[in-house]
Design a protein around this nucleic acid. Structure first.
Lengths: 238, 238
DNA sequence: CGCTAGAGATCGTTCAACAATCCCGCAAGA
DNA sequence: TCTTGCGGGATTGTTGAACGATCTCTAGCG
């Protein structure tokens, strides 16, 4: 990307550099990965299904090697799992994986909130937008849209820390979590209660009451975890 | 994980399963990745060098596709960076990356320590061993060994949480951090002070004084970060 | 009914080739 | 002298085919 390269005093150069990074993103494998990522995150492929190389090569019109490179990408995002000599599958999360996931999630999100500095309110803007989007989706009963807005909220929350690595960990975490969402029957009970809790959390942040916000977030995430665990056990009592 | 509750009658099955997992690990790409990983983590390849596909294909006697798959593996471990149409390079961390890294590290490690339960002392055994190994290396002036032992200490510390995902995040984090270590001239001042701090931390854990341990760890990591930043700026004042 | 052997399908790996892109040097122009 | 534009060579991106290795499933045996 850009190690300590030339230092332009001109601000628009920086913008160009940022945009150039987006343009570079045109590897065939990555585009293939984009397609598959969408199919998986939107829940078209039920957990446990195998992604046949042969079929996908034919469908996507790319070579096997390229497809396999895309598989690698998604595997390391945890959106697919790879079993040697057996193929790649869309993973099915069990209860243990969910607990593990929430363990990490609490560590990240709560640390971000707890160590937040009184912040320019403009930075909270994306969070506000997400809450608004979630509310709109609630009135329209677009429950998957509600879920998406909620996840964006938490993603933007972590982004407040300004840490690229934390953002990436969080992104992977949420992608994996979304797989669990698809496993439960009713998305409404899963997402609806948290819209207003997000709003409440946001107010605490706006007022600079970070400790309270962190405590609330802990409870929030525990509730969410319990609910998801219950739904998972109901769906698969095995 | 609670090995104390392991079922005795099938315990050997578990062993076999564990060993099988190791055997499964026999993909050529992964073995190639192992070789390269060692070369990078041991600092043989200075940051910024490009890893030529042609040369490595000839040296390792594998096909380009396999090598590229190994590159992917290491890229997602952050041990290499891939630039489109330019090749893969061993990354050079700047100050910003270091700060970012320690931000995430504090979040993970401190959360683990803070939310620790009074624990079976047997679980602390790996940490004890690491401290002992570090002390032995100190008397032998094997500073890189000291660094390795210290990193294993922190890795085992996170392992106390019993979260696979936290372990993985931590492993990637430490791998990247090791790259920064190679950039500083004197490894002694970098690692020596922390041997005894690790020991002190471990005593706090053994006594169940987790809150104190967490506070100490925060200070610990800040000190380490500052030191590393100073060394980095001294090496490359750019 | 359970077990084994084999066939078929799929994956792992390699190879060779071509297209796309980048890097470097050189020359033309201001 | 500095910038700009243009190759030529080197390197990477992508493809398709091929062969061996491994898994899965079924048929047939005891």
């Amino acid at each position: 990307m850009d190690p300590g390269r030339a230092l332009p005093e001109v601000s628009w150069l920086r913008r160009v550099a940022d945009e150039a990074r987006v343009l570079d993103r045109s590897s065939t494998a990555e585009r293939v990965a984009d397609v598959l990522r969408r199919r998986v995150t939107e829940g078209d492929l039920p957990p446990g299904t195998r992604l046949s190389e042969e079929q996908l090569v034919a469908a996507l019109r790319v070579s096997r090697n390229t497809l396999r490179e895309a598989f690698r990408l998604l595997t390391h995002e945890r959106l697919l799992v790879h079993e040697l000599h057996r193929g790649v599958f869309v993973p099915q999360l069990d209860a243990a994986a969910l607990v593990d996931l929430y363990r990490l999630r609490r560590a990240i999100e709560c640390d971000v909130v707890r160590s937040l500095q009184p912040v320019d309110h403009g930075l909270l803007r994306p969070l506000l937008d997400d809450v608004a989007a979630a509310r709109a989706a609630v009135t329209g009963h677009g429950w998957v849209a509600v879920g998406t807005a909620n996840m964006r909220f938490h993603s933007h929350l972590v982004a407040l820390a300004g840490s690229r690595r934390m953002d990436e960990v969080m992104a992977r975490l949420l992608a994996e979590l979304r797989l669990a969402f698809h496993a439960v029957a009713s998305p409404r009970v899963l997402h609806e209660p948290y819209v207003e809790r997000n709003a409440a959390l946001l107010e605490l942040l706006r007022d600079g009451r970070f400790a309270e916000a962190a405590d609330e977030l802990v409870a929030y995430l525990h509730d969410s975890e319990d609910q998801l665990l219950g739904a998972l056990r109901a769906a698969e009592p095995s």
